[in-house]
């Protein structure tokens, strides 16, 4: 379809391929590094600590942490891939081409977020495969697992895209994943059930949106969850809607993209 039509499919495909080519070029950082760190988590949490812990919600501890580990990587990788994808053209100046191309804001978001989410989903599946080497894994609701995986990857890629536009420096680019997402994930039940916390902290934890994402994803594996799966799905979709509103505002106002 030509760009003069209603949808610049070739433009979307060009950006998507460009971003995926970057993924291939940086395969070591993109794929192997998270897999190694996941394996280390298994050694530390699954074997060393897990061997001294009883089951959590009827699930052996090493298996219990698998969904949380996948989510941890999904959050950070979606964020860093999408934020870097749009920040780098801003940093080196090649953003001029994107802004002067016959491509709509929806198409730009679709291409960048689609590519970042694709990489994260692939990474999530690779981590799942790695985890299966350490512990036997049974997925009770595979379709829901895929749905949560895709939705979370899209969510955090969109969020990453927004932070990439917001960031004015590499320090700011690192700020959200390091100082916001990682703590929220560690405090969001990635390695424990929030039932294990004192009641007061349990209430505080419920204000952490990450709890709902990890809980829903874990439910798709073992049917055990900290909060109802409907609430998890609702929160995931709510966060997605919030990101969409933000990105719409960014393109409407040209925030940190156009003068």
């Amino acid at each position: 379809m030509s760009a003069a039509g209603s949808f610049n499919a070739r433009g979307v495909w060009a950006i998507y391929r460009f971003e995926m080519a970057r993924f291939r070029r940086t395969l070591l950082q993109s794929l192997i590094a998270p897999v190694i760190s996941t394996a280390l988590y298994f050694v530390v949490f699954g074997s060393a600590i897990g061997s001294r812990m009883s089951q959590v919600g009827g699930v052996p501890y090493a298996a219990f942490i698998v969904p949380g580990l996948i989510m941890l990587s999904l959050f950070t990788e979606s964020l860093s891939n999408a934020s870097f994808g749009i920040y780098f053209p801003k940093f080196v100046g090649t953003i001029y081409e994107l802004l002067s191309a016959p491509i709509s804001s929806v198409e730009i978001v679709l291409a960048y977020v689609g590519a970042a989410a694709s990489k994260s989903i692939l990474l999530g599946l690779v981590i799942l495969g790695t985890a299966a080497l350490f512990v036997p894994i049974h997925i009770l609701h595979p379709l829901w697992m895929i749905a949560f995986l895709v939705l979370t990857a899209a969510n955090f890629s969109l969020f990453g895209f927004i932070t990439g536009i917001w960031a004015k420096s590499f320090d700011q680019l690192q700020f959200i994943p390091m100082l916001v997402i990682t703590p929220l994930t560690f405090l969001g039940g990635a390695f424990y059930s929030i039932d294990m916390l004192p009641p007061a902290w349990r209430t505080v934890t419920l204000f952490n949106p990450v709890v709902y994402l990890i809980s829903g994803f874990r439910w798709s594996f073992y049917e055990t969850s900290d909060v109802g799966v409907g609430v998890s799905l609702g929160m995931t979709l709510g966060f997605f809607a919030l990101c969409l509103i933000l990105v719409t505002w960014i393109f409407r106002t040209g925030y940190r993209l156009k003068n």
Binding site: A4, R10, A14, F18, A101
Partner: peptide, 27 residues
């Protein structure tokens, strides 16, 4: 548009970057 500043995708090959531009503009 050929802007004043030299802004290029440093890690890409010449062929890939020119083909990317063509695709981006819907060709």
């Amino acid at each position: 548009l050929v802007p004043q500043e030299l802004a290029t995708d440093t890690f890409e090959t010449v062929w890939a970057t020119v083909s990317f531009s063509r695709g981006l503009f819907g060709r």
